[in-house]
Design a protein around this nucleic acid. Structure first.
Lengths: 140, 140
DNA sequence: CAGCATCCGATAGGATACTG
DNA sequence: CAGTATCCTATCGGATGCTG
């Protein structure tokens, strides 16, 4: 784990993405808002396996409404993570593929997915334990 | 990019977190919902630098409301990512620190932050370009 | 097929006031 | 200090119907 920090390592976990002592928001938000929304990551995961057409995407992601797929894919396009290509056939045909930038995100997405799978049991158990000890507390 | 896939590599980017051809949701959601929400990651980043008290956290994350900090930190506690310790002093004193599980997430969070910083310019330019060519389209 | 438009309920999340 | 309790708005996101 290396970050380009300029000086000494303060603690065992000196994590400061901005280089500021208090990492205001420093733009993490911009990415997090994209990575964080309900569908983007799943779409990226699917596109990591190759170009997909609209309906293919919708079937693959499964559960996503057409409205949300449209919005998700548009935002990814706007951010330059996905390339949208329209073929002037009849009926219309459109495909989506990751750009180089989008491709570079797949590593992280994969890491996230791996972490998720690796810890889901642990998390599930933690939740059960918590819920058992806080029956009233309805944090979800 | 390597994933533990069982058979042949279909494309240049065979990314399948579940091991299923269509990666339903396979539990990525559980983590994504936590990583994805507006504040969790920022809180984790702050806690990666050491234990913090409630007010310290609120000041550090900056912008978070007290209500959201409470909810965020409670959910992280429930998931076993954060340990909450109450000292029966007057006035009350509580601190929060990452558990081992939470600690293990900091690597990913850091990677995400790095990616974010590394691509924010690229993304900003993509957005400007998109908005210039789609003046009417208001996808945000 | 690949969408846009519209309606509408559910949730996120801010502001504010109060408590042990 | 470290919350809890309310209220209220904005956005998310599903369902449905229509178009090129």
């Amino acid at each position: 784990m290396s970050l380009t920090h300029t000086g000494v390592t303060i603690g065992p976990a000196d994590l400061d993405p901005c280089g500021q002592p208090d990492h205001a928001d420093c733009g993490i938000r911009e990415v997090l808002d994209r990575v964080g929304d309900k569908w983007s990551v799943l779409v990226i995961v699917e596109l990591a396996n190759g170009a997909r057409r609209f309906r293919e995407l919708q079937r693959a992601v499964d559960g996503i409404s057409q409205r949300m797929l449209t919005l998700t894919v548009r935002r990814l396009e706007r951010d330059g993570l996905v390339l949208r290509t329209v073929y002037p056939t009849v009926p219309a045909q459109v495909d989506y593929r990751l750009t180089a930038t989008g491709e570079s995100l797949t590593h992280l997405v994969k890491a996230l997915a791996d972490w998720s799978l690796g810890h889901r049991d642990s998390i599930a158990r933690a939740r059960q334990a918590y819920d058992a000890e806080h029956p009233d507390n309805d944090i979800r």
